[in-house]
Nucleic acid binder design. Sequence first.
DNA 1: TCACCAGGCACAATCGATTGTGTAAAGTAA
DNA 2: TTACTTTACACAATCGATTGTGCCTGGTGA
Lengths: 352, 352
Amino acid sequence: MADLARELGVSMTTISRALSDHHSIGPAMKQKVLKLAKKYNYQPNRLASALRKGKSQLLGIIVPYIEGRFFPSVVHGIETAASKAGYNVIICQSNEDVAQERRNLEILLSAQVAGILVSLSRTTLDFRHFDKVRSRGLPLVFFDRIVEGDNVNAVVLDDQEGGCLSTRHLLQQGCRRIAHLAGPQHLNIYKNRRQGYLDALREAGIPVEEELMVYTNMTQEQGTEAMRSLLALPSPPDAIFAAGDYCALGALQEAQRQGLRVPQDIAISGFSNETFTVITEPSITTIDQRCEEMGQAAVRLLLELVDADGNPFAPRQVSLRPELLVRRSSVRQPDNVAASVQGVAADVLLPQ
Amino acid sequence: MADLARELGVSMTTISRALSDHHSIGPAMKQKVLKLAKKYNYQPNRLASALRKGKSQLLGIIVPYIEGRFFPSVVHGIETAASKAGYNVIICQSNEDVAQERRNLEILLSAQVAGILVSLSRTTLDFRHFDKVRSRGLPLVFFDRIVEGDNVNAVVLDDQEGGCLSTRHLLQQGCRRIAHLAGPQHLNIYKNRRQGYLDALREAGIPVEEELMVYTNMTQEQGTEAMRSLLALPSPPDAIFAAGDYCALGALQEAQRQGLRVPQDIAISGFSNETFTVITEPSITTIDQRCEEMGQAAVRLLLELVDADGNPFAPRQVSLRPELLVRRSSVRQPDNVAASVQGVAADVLLPQ
DNA sequence: TCACCAGGCACAATCGATTGTGTAAAGTAA
DNA sequence: TTACTTTACACAATCGATTGTGCCTGGTGA
């Protein structure tokens, strides 16, 4: 900047203001500065700028890890949205460890990020380390694994709706004895998926049968076992709604091992849209978690907070509508498919 | 810092030096400063520090995208290694677009990162934008998709070795007519995998038969087609080495459709260790690309450059040894498996 | 003609940490 | 005792950009 100022015979003030389009600089001067800046390929030092302004163009992300299908996709969405808005992201992994999560938080604070996006580690039970962020007035948005309550900003998938969509779809396919492979009920996502299942059954006037709900840890093996026990029932189910794709896969394989045709003899649907669900035979109907949209929504919310700048509005919880992906493992009545796939576009903005 | 200085009645110089363990500060004073810093939970402003020192604790990453299996795993490895060394990473996606790659590079430069890790976009044919990085004396390391030549720092997988390992394994299983589903030969990775295949055959004294090499674009569909044409040969192969897992999957499915038993009638191996290779029936033998190790190796190399600080050594190319993962799709002689899985541990450091 | 206003620009302080140089006090050797 | 090191700390400049305040000039209205 000093070079530009010298060459044009003006002060650095003028250069700075010309580049940031300040009103007190004449249009002629602005042009000259811009042209010279281009000629010298001037790159502002973001550090200096951020130091002075007290705010960088960086967003911090803390995720448990960057692997599997979910988190990378969310991060992809975040980076894309952030970059579009002129921000860059600095990424941290907590490795499911609170202590690491705390350390990451400190690091992001000392890096003077403009805002922080967090998906909690599994071992995070105490949330006080986030108070430090709030007290600094730094925007904070949780996604997927969030702090419960309505005094935080958060973006989640509507798992209950997902469970409901899935179950409704199976009902529309003519299934009446729909089993549910449930996950650990202390985890919200699985509790909500099960609730959606129950909602859909009630809606259809079908009584819930306890023997059709099997609790698993969502692994492929447990899916296999669960299927085995279900098929051994006096009156086995004609459909399975699994709260996870791996579990659904195990169930599918076991059904086929026992000589059942899927979906004719038993329909199957999963949850999460894992990559492999499109390559199995038959492909598995599942629920897409809209990972990228989640990332984008989180950034959008965060940047609103950033722009509000010290005058934060009431915390918001955004709930994304899941998308039902109908594949061959569940289609028994092709004509009814269209009806199942309605209304998957708009996001819901819950009140408060 | 000013607060600490005031409270202790010393200058900020002393505080700064005490915290960075400078020799000109007495041990007594250091203790006092450290204690007070802890008490007030002092967090240094990394921006200010970086501005003054001209170097931040940030590493920049540019990848084509953060999805699929490969890049997220590498990023995972990078973040882990960087964080262990006290660095944080700021991540950018080029979306396979040179222009975006160039923009990302500028951003990282203006963010004053300590070094940059790059995996090239597919559309990058001109590498001049990287000269700017070099001319600033900023450490630069390529990984996976690299600039060819021995005047750059790079970390790659030894694809040729991978092809060789795979083919050798099939030979050890007693296969003699091994077909190869090759990828686009203008891409180095596929060219090298094919070369490894040829090497292993030559090594075993088995003549190469052109009709056993099928060129595909590595999709599942083309794997299926390729298998169909191979099985229609007068003398069909007894094994398939596919240069990619999706392609191998297509081949596997077609073989099974035609009533062949895998691996008894035909053995199959793939490449990349995609997630689905463990859940197919049978599971698919493949080559692991050591994504995390690649990230770690890249960081290690980059940090060496950073520490060398202006006295860069001769550029280095690190070549990672691929790992053969023997699964059921290829095991015909269980006794021979052990022999196939040897020597997968050490990385190779090529000269120069 | 005089006062007032707005436009256009420069001065200098500032963000928070780092570092070369300067300078006392204390310790050592001759 | 004198001279010379060490040790321990302070001063002040510095990194590069931003910004409140102030000054000057040309223009407008009375």
